[in-house]
Design a protein around this nucleic acid. Structure first.
Lengths: 342, 342
DNA sequence: CTGTTAGCGCTTTCAA
DNA sequence: TTGAAAGCGCTAACAG
């Protein structure tokens, strides 16, 4: 137990007040610059605070004011480049608006997401920024009870009455599919991500819709995968390659999935793009340096975080704002991983 | 302002007590399972709490008990794979020990690191896990005043009396240098990271020491770089390649730096490994898929986080533990990015 | 087994 | 311009 100074006593506002020869309320006012005070006392309090290395307790302050200036940020996996970048964007915006960020990684588990939400609520965060792994509306409302403003990012819960900011999954998949079709591919496969997450669900739906538009010239060779990991990518690719009529082109719902596909192709002696064209939704800073360089749909993950944070800051303000939904544009970067079918 | 239920009132322990027909203290005991209570009241309280969707305020609880069960985690950059993984490891260990994690990304800035530390202290965290960007001992102690237990990871502050866990930077660099020397390289260069961070400093020192051991047959062609970024890697590589006697092999202090080198080589038409051998301290899950696959020193970043967290949990316990320093083993994975000089 | 009382450290009326 | 007093929501003696 070291949470105290050598005299065995945490420095409190009362200590500062005593040393400055004023009352606690005066000390409080001086430190927060509220009310009219003589310059003299103001200085005395400041000196005392400095001398004692006073750190006001946010705990007590928050308890009193019932506002913590803290927001909770819940993601399925911080080590994913997308969430890491979104976090930084959100953090910056929130910091500038005077909020701190409490991060929770729920490791892709709905139960841990609920746990995280509860912890955050217990800490009385002023707002929530969440990329849900797929909690339904009832479950979500059961936990939060609408107690705090919440903005979803890279996910949304329909009818929750909250704002959200997501990528334009439909446009991105269209870009990928159309590119393949234009280059003569007729059998295209999809490496799908988690179906319970908005982006996993939408990308798959978008793929099916895009392919339907090109029927009957082009057909879905197969769809495999239910998670976002590299591992899942390897398995799903094996599965699609083993098909009687395997795809000549593969759309991966994420970079990790694409990387898995590359690994599997290497293992099976399938050459990219000669034997199989590959492209991914999601860019990465190393995509260009891969062998072969990966064609990808790209966007600014940091801005997604910033936008979500702005929405939340607005929602946390006193004026009740209409929940808004933002959809971010994406674009295609063609690199060496896709070509025409043989 | 929505931080209240529809009746305009946050549910408090008193509400639960009232509904259950007991006193607040009894309700508290029932909810926390402390003291001897009749099963009847226990059940009544539980029912009331559930019915009201009661979420105890951690704020009030912490204020009263002066323990928050929360630890602060400060890193220079969450989007770095190393820190992201370390965070997950630490978070898991801490979660199992009953602690929550408050993350702060200081974006490589010493000022923001201090700010983060202050915020964390104001929130009365029970402990600190920090990878410092290079605060000196005085500065650090000025801020924390030894108020809470602290464990440094991937960094350390000499003489701070705190525990630390870092990678064996010396062994890692030795592995890299020796590998190059064995393959006949005589002029080796270094892409250095931030000199104010322990790992940046040590990797450079290790490089100089390792090279000294091979003198006079082998010489340092040059050392460039003062940051960890990919960008810095491109510039530093340009610099070394422009030397009158450029290196035939390059040791990169991090993957990002190595990636920068690859970009620059591609731009200048320098072939890897034919014209220049390249290897990095730090592995990445995509290293094998790069063109060419990157030779790297690898380790388990997650375990670094776990170890640091364990140390901290121990330090936060009542028994004053001796500050310990752990150094993690690393090993070399040889891939295609290095060969013999022409 | 349970209620009463006090108080964690701060802010905020209300008086002076 | 400043102080006294109350209270945020909870827990921990101390009684009963």
């Amino acid at each position: 137990m070291r949470n105290r100074l050598q005299n065995g006593h945490v420095v409190t506002l009362a200590d500062v007040a005593r040393r400055a020869g004023v009352s606690a309320s005066t000390a409080s006012r001086a430190l927060n610059g509220r009310g009219e005070l003589s310059d003299q006392t103001r200085a005395a309090v400041a000196d005392a605070a400095r001398a004692l290395q006073f750190q006001p307790s946010q705990l007590a302050r928050s308890l009193r004011t019932s506002t913590t200036h803290t927001v909770g940020f819940v993601v399925p996996d911080v080590s994913s480049p997308f969430y890491a970048a979104a976090l930084k964007g959100a953090q910056t915006t929130l910091h500038d608006a005077g909020y701190r960020t409490l991060l929770m990684d729920c490791e892709q588990s709905a139960d841990r997401e609920i746990e995280a939400l509860q912890t955050l609520l217990a800490h009385r965060v002023d707002g929530l920024l969440v990329s849900t792994v797929g909690l339904g509306r009832e479950r979500f409302e059961e936990v939060t009870g609408g107690r705090v403003p919440c903005v979803f990012f890279d996910s949304s819960i329909v009818g929750s009455g909250e704002g959200s900011v997501i990528l334009d999954n439909y446009a991105g998949i269209d870009l990928l599919v159309d590119h393949f079709v234009e280059h003569g591919h007729r059998r295209i496969g999809l490496l799908a991500g988690s179906p319970s997450e908005t982006s996993g669900f939408e990308r798959r739906a978008a793929f099916e819709a895009a392919m339907a538009r090109h029927e009957p010239h082009v057909t879905i060779a197969g769809i495999a995968g239910r998670e976002w990991s590299l591992h899942e990518g390897t398995h799903a690719t094996h599965e699609l390659l083993a098909l009687e009529e395997p795809p000549t082109a593969l759309v991966a719902s994420s970079v990790e999935l694409a990387l898995g596909a590359m690994l599997t192709c290497r293992e099976r002696g399938v050459r990219i793009p000669d034997d199989l064209a590959l492209a991914a939704f999601d860019d990465a800073y190393f995509a260009e340096l891969l062998d072969p360089p990966l064609t990808a749909v790209t966007y600014r993950p940091r801005e997604v975080g910033e936008a979500a944070a702005s929405l939340l800051v607005e929602a946390m303000g006193d004026d009740e704002p209409g929940a808004r939904d933002l959809r971010f544009d994406v674009r295609l970067i063609v690199r060496g991983s896709c070509g025409c079918p043989r």
